[in-house]
Design a protein around this nucleic acid. Structure first.
Ligand SMILES: [Mn+2]
Ligand SMILES: [Mn+2]
Ligand SMILES: [Zn+2]
Ligand SMILES: [Zn+2]
Lengths: 146, 146
DNA sequence: TTCTTAAATTATAATCTTTATAAATAGTGT
DNA sequence: ACACTATTTATAAAGATTATAATTTAAGAA
C-alpha cells in the first residue's frame, strides 16, 4: 500500500512536470513510510547515510515543491522547526506536551464553526486549523502513584 | 476600561513578585491598547521613541514573563515571527491570507472534539487550538468585477 | 531618605532554522 | 548521444529568538 502511495506520488510529480531525482524519491519514500511527522532535519539526517553529499537545501526545496503540489502538509507549531505530513486523508492531530508525540485522529470536520466565523466576520472562509494538546497515555502513566 | 485592565495586570505582576519597570509598564500598555496582534518587533519599534535604549531582548524577556503569568498568549502561525495577544476572554481568530489581518471572534468552544480526541487516543486533553483562514471583506472586495 | 540586594536591562554575541546565490551536475525529451 | 534546463550542491546570508555578562534599577529594610 505504501508502494502504491509512492507510485501515485511519483505520478503526481510527472504530471506537474517535476523531475524525479533519487533525492526526491528518497524523501518521498521516507515521508510515506515514516509514521511520525518529521522535521526537515529529521529527513536530512535519516538520508545522509544513503546521500552523504545531499545538501540540507535540497530537503527544504523539495519539501516546498511537495507542499505546492499538495503531496505534503507543513505543520507549524510553536516550537522551532516545521514538521511535514504526507497527505493521505484529512485528519487532525493530538500533541503531547510532555514528549512532543503527534497522533492522528479523524473527526467529521468543523463546518459549523467555519460558517459561524464567516457570518460574524464577513470573511470568505477557505479552511481551518485545529489541534488538541494534552498528555499521551505513556507520559500520563509515568506520573501515576502506585 | 483599558485603564482597569492595565491596573489589574500590574496587580498580577505584584502578586507574582515581578517588578514593575517602566519598560514593562509600556509594553503592557501597548499590548492592551493595541487592537492588533503585534509581534515582538512591532512592540520594540513602537516604543523606541519613548525608550531609545531599550534592548530587543527586554521585549522578548517580558513577553515571556507575561506569558508565564498568563497575561498574554503567544500566537505562532506559519510565518516568521510570533504574535502576542493580551488575554481578556477566550476567543478564536480568523486570519486573512491576503493581508494578514487577524480578527477575533467568540464561539462556545469545542468540548465535543476534545472529548472525542481523548476517547479515541487515550490522551489526557488539556486544551485545543483552532483558527479559521480565509479572505477579509476588504481583500475580497478589491477583487470584485464591476 | 538612604542603603542593600536581587532582579531587570542593556549591549552584544551566539544559535538555530530557513532561504538565497551561483556554479556544477544530472534528468528528460529528441 | 545531445542539448536544454531543472536540480543539486556548497556556501553564505537572513531573520527570529536566546544566552551572556556587565551595568543599572526597583523595592523593601533600616
Ligand atoms: Mn498526521
Ligand atoms: Mn485575539
Ligand atoms: Zn508523551
Ligand atoms: Zn485582508
Amino acid at each position: 500500500m505504501s508502494e502504491d502511495m509512492l507510485k501515485e506520488a511519483l505520478h503526481s510529480l510527472k504530471d506537474t512536470g517535476v523531475r524525479i531525482t533519487p533525492q526526491r524519491h528518497a524523501i518521498l519514500e521516507y515521508l510515506i513510510n515514516s509514521m511520525s511527522h518529521p522535521t526537515a532535519d529529521d529527513i536530512y539526517k535519516a538520508l545522509e547515510g544513503t546521500f552523504p553529499n545531499m545538501s540540507v537545501a535540497t530537503v527544504y526545496n523539495n519539501l516546498r515543491v511537495f507542499r505546492e503540489i499538495g503531496l505534503v502538509k507543513e505543520l507549524t507549531y510553536g516550537d522551532s522547526s516545521a514538521r511535514f505530513d504526507f497527505v493521505t486523508t484529512n485528519h487532525y492531530h493530538v500533541i503531547c506536551q510532555e514528549c512532543g508525540k503527534i497522533v492522528d485522529f479523524h473527526y467529521p470536520g468543523l463546518d459549523e464553526v467555519e460558517h459561524f466565523a464567516s457570518q460574524v466576520t464577513g470573511f470568505n472562509v477557505s479552511h481551518h486549523r485545529m489541534e488538541i494538546y494534552g498528555e499521551c497515555p505513556e507520559c500520563s502513566g509515568t506520573k501515576e502513584v502506585h
